[in-house]
Structures are given as C-alpha cells and as structure tokens.
Simulated scan of single mutants.
Amino acid sequence: MPSNKLHDPEIMISDYGTAFIVEKTPSSTLYTSALYSPPEVLFNEPITRPTAADIWTLGISLYEILGERPLFETISSDPGDVIGDIINTLGRPPERWWDSWVRRSELFKEAGSWVDNFSRISTPEFRPLRQRLWEMGRGETDQTCEWDVAGGELDALEGFLRAMLAFEPAERPTVNQLL
C-alpha cells in the first residue's frame, strides 16, 4: 500500500539482521544484508561501535523510506558491488580501505571514476548522494522539486544523511545527536 494511503501508521524497526546486547558486541560478524551493512563490516574490520553501525543502517533505511527505492542500487548483494556503489554515492573511502580493496581496479580508475563499460551495477554513471536526493525530489527545477530547495530542505537532508553515512564509525552521530 502506498504510504500516502496509510492513516496514522506506526513504523517499528526491531533490528537490522543481528540483535545483541551492546556490551556484548560480536567481534566481527553481523548478519545484516550487504546493502545495509556499514563499510567497516564490508571491509572486515572489527565492530568497535555497534550503535554507529546501526546509525549507518538507519541512514540507508531513511533514504529508502523517503525515496521509495534503495540508496545503493547494485544488481547483486555482493559486498564488492555494494562497496562500489557506496563509493559512487559517497566518494572515496578512507585510504586504508581504498588501498586494501582488492576489487578496486576492477571497478574504479585510480582517481576514483568508474572503469569504462562497467555493467554489473545498474547505475554505472557517477551518481553522488546530492544527485540521488535531487532525483528523489522528482523535480527538474528548484520550483518544481518536491524539496524546499530555497528554504534549505535539500541541504538539511543531505547533511543529515551524510552524517549518518560517515565512513568512519567514530564520526557518525549518536541517536541523541540525531534527535
């Protein structure tokens, strides 16, 4: 049912595939789909800030709810393809990930642009977050966009999501900061 047809809906998110007591964080395994997993999981780093991992996934979910489509639009849920679309959307990751990513040269040129004729991602052209948000607003001009562009709504949403989707877990806001 389309969301505009619902009356007084209640949205409940119970977990993102793995639930655990925060003080007993698993060392490295989350059972969250690659499309919702934070980059530290995709790059096989230990989970040192579990609430930061949830903030990442919340940002992905928020985009999907508002945009009525996934943020990362890979054809597969292969972690390498997801990493490629994350970089396409958010830019180059920290150097330790960029340098260690085995499939990097398969998908990107050294400067960070797509390798020509890359076809496994459904949107092989460069589509940064700002462009995806603009397309979500379904308008061709500031006046026809559903976002109040002049009033700063698009900038505010982009800043909110970028904070949640910071590559480094320590840079993501807490729930209280988001509120």
Rank of each mutant, 00 (worst) to 15 (best):
residue 73 E to K: 13
residue 65 I to T: 12
residue 118 F to N: 00
residue 5 K to N: 13
residue 50 P to M: 05
residue 29 T to P: 05
residue 163 A to H: 03
residue 19 A to L: 04
residue 29 T to A: 12
residue 5 K to A: 14
residue 38 P to L: 07
residue 84 G to V: 15
residue 118 F to A: 00
residue 154 L to D: 00
residue 133 L to I: 08
residue 21 I to L: 11
residue 64 E to N: 05
residue 126 F to V: 13
residue 144 T to M: 05
residue 43 F to Y: 08
residue 41 V to R: 06
residue 9 P to N: 08
residue 78 D to A: 09
residue 117 N to D: 09
residue 89 T to I: 00
residue 150 A to D: 07
residue 101 W to T: 06
residue 93 P to H: 08
residue 17 G to D: 02
residue 62 L to E: 02
residue 104 R to Q: 04
residue 65 I to D: 09
residue 83 I to K: 10
residue 142 D to C: 12
residue 157 L to D: 08
residue 141 T to Y: 01
residue 130 R to S: 04
residue 25 T to C: 07
residue 79 P to L: 03
residue 72 F to G: 13
residue 140 E to K: 15
residue 20 F to H: 05
residue 142 D to M: 11
residue 111 A to Q: 08
residue 105 S to C: 09
residue 87 I to G: 04
residue 163 A to W: 02
residue 105 S to N: 12
residue 97 W to F: 12
residue 101 W to D: 00
residue 24 K to N: 09
residue 135 E to V: 11
residue 133 L to N: 08
residue 56 W to C: 01
residue 130 R to A: 11
residue 70 P to T: 12
residue 39 P to E: 07
residue 122 S to N: 09
residue 8 D to K: 15
residue 44 N to M: 11
residue 57 T to G: 15
residue 45 E to K: 14
residue 54 D to I: 05
residue 20 F to T: 08
residue 86 I to G: 01
residue 162 R to N: 05
residue 2 P to E: 06
residue 145 C to L: 03
residue 102 V to I: 10
residue 60 I to N: 04
residue 84 G to S: 13
residue 68 E to K: 13
residue 7 H to M: 12
residue 43 F to C: 05
residue 166 A to Q: 02
residue 54 D to T: 15
residue 42 L to G: 05
residue 159 G to I: 15
residue 60 I to C: 08
residue 144 T to E: 09
residue 44 N to T: 15
residue 115 V to T: 01
residue 4 N to Q: 07
residue 134 W to H: 11
residue 124 P to H: 01
residue 31 Y to H: 15
residue 174 T to V: 07
residue 156 A to T: 10
residue 175 V to G: 05
residue 15 D to R: 11
residue 110 E to D: 10
residue 169 P to G: 01
residue 133 L to F: 07
residue 51 T to H: 10
residue 65 I to M: 12
residue 126 F to N: 10
residue 50 P to Q: 06
residue 90 L to V: 01
residue 116 D to E: 01
residue 23 E to F: 04
residue 82 V to T: 02
residue 99 D to C: 14
residue 171 E to D: 15
residue 117 N to Q: 10
residue 17 G to M: 04
residue 177 Q to F: 07
residue 35 L to A: 14
residue 115 V to N: 01
residue 93 P to A: 14
residue 54 D to M: 02
residue 121 I to D: 06
residue 7 H to T: 15
residue 69 R to I: 11
residue 32 T to P: 04
residue 75 I to S: 07
residue 70 P to Y: 07
residue 121 I to V: 14
residue 2 P to H: 06
residue 118 F to T: 01
